[in-house]
Structures are given as C-alpha cells and as structure tokens.
C-alpha cells in the first residue's frame, strides 16, 4: 500500500497534461493568423476555439480522474520491441525515396524478421526479398501505381 500523493503520475493525469500542452501549443502556433469575429470567423478562429476546448477537457481529466492505473503499472513489456519497430520503420521511410522500394522494403523486412522477431536468417532473407519484389511487381508493374525506384532505375 503506497502513501497517497496528490501528484501521483497516473495515465489519466499524464494524458490531461499532454492535452493541455498540445492545446496551448496550437494557440501559440496560431499567432499571425487573423482571428476574425463571431460574424466573420477568420482562419485562426476555429483552431483557437478547439484548442481552448482541448485545454478544458485536459483540465477536467486532470481534476476528476484520480483513477486509472499509474504509469508504471501499465506494463511496458512491449515498449522495447515497439521502439525497435519504430526505429526500423523510420529508417525505412528515410531510405525509401533514396534507395527505392525493393531495396528498402527488403532491408526493413529482413531487420524485422531476423533482428526483431529473431527468425532464422536464411528464411528471413527469402521472405523479405520475395515479399518486397512480389509487392513491387503487383503494385508498380501490374497496377502501375508508381513506387520509388533505386538510383539504378530498374526497380
């Protein structure tokens, strides 16, 4: 049994704070846009009204929801995996316009299969190359939905 602290970080409180921060940020970023009036709302009118509403909801969450699990108790067992996937995907999106679809996606799949999911390396290579080339053939060559090419220009 923990002693009850007023500022214990529960999920709801963190979320409330984040919503308030995001609303405030949106208001700050609306500077320079005309607000207009109630009769003639300008481009900043709606965003500011919505930001204020968001701040309001954030405050309500903060005030009323002592409940909800503590942040630590949520169980972050998958966080490391999630981070690995996000990093891999980010690298792939960075590479996509530079190295082309087939190379990038094959690398991403190999990384996810062999490194993140720890599958056998040979099978991983086969699956990644097959999937990358197969989807490229279907989308780019079959349906003519153009995908990024490698600097070599072929695929």
């Amino acid at each position: 049994m923990q002693p009850r602290l007023p500022l214990r970080l529960t999920a709801d409180r963190v979320a409330g704070l984040a919503l308030i921060a995001f609303g405030a940020l949106a208001i700050v970023e609306s500077r320079g846009l005309p607000v207009g009036s109630l009769r003639e709302p300008g481009p900043a009118y709606f965003p500011i009204v919505l930001s204020l509403a968001l701040i309001g909801f954030g405050a309500l969450l903060l005030a009323f929801s002592g409940g909800g699990a503590g942040l630590r108790e949520l169980g972050w067992e998958e966080a490391r995996h999630a981070l690995l996937i996000v990093l891999g995907a980010a690298a792939a999106i960075f590479l996509l316009p530079r190295a082309g679809y087939v190379i990038t996606i094959a690398l991403l799949l190999f990384y996810l299969l062999a490194v993140v999911a720890r599958r056998h390396w040979l099978l991983s290579i086969l699956v990644s190359v097959g999937l990358a080339a197969g989807t490229f053939a279907l989308f780019d060559m079959g349906l003519r939905v153009l995908l990024p090419r490698s600097p070599l220009g072929f695929f």
Binding site: I93, L96, P97, I105, L109, L112, T135, F139, L147
Partner: peptide, 25 residues
C-alpha cells in the same frame, strides 16, 4: 513473427500508394 513485418510493410506501402507522398508515410 512473420505476419507483423508484413503488416508494417503494408502500412508503408498502402499509405504511399494512396497519395504518392513520402510526407504522408
């Protein structure tokens, strides 16, 4: 273990195919 890498691929491919914009990805 095999399904999730394919889903990640489809997320990237699907979004790119829809608009042709890397910013969307």
């Amino acid at each position: 273990g095999y399904l999730f890498p394919a889903i990640v691929m489809f997320c990237i491919l699907g979004v790119y195919a829809a608009s042709g914009s890397i910013v969307d990805v």
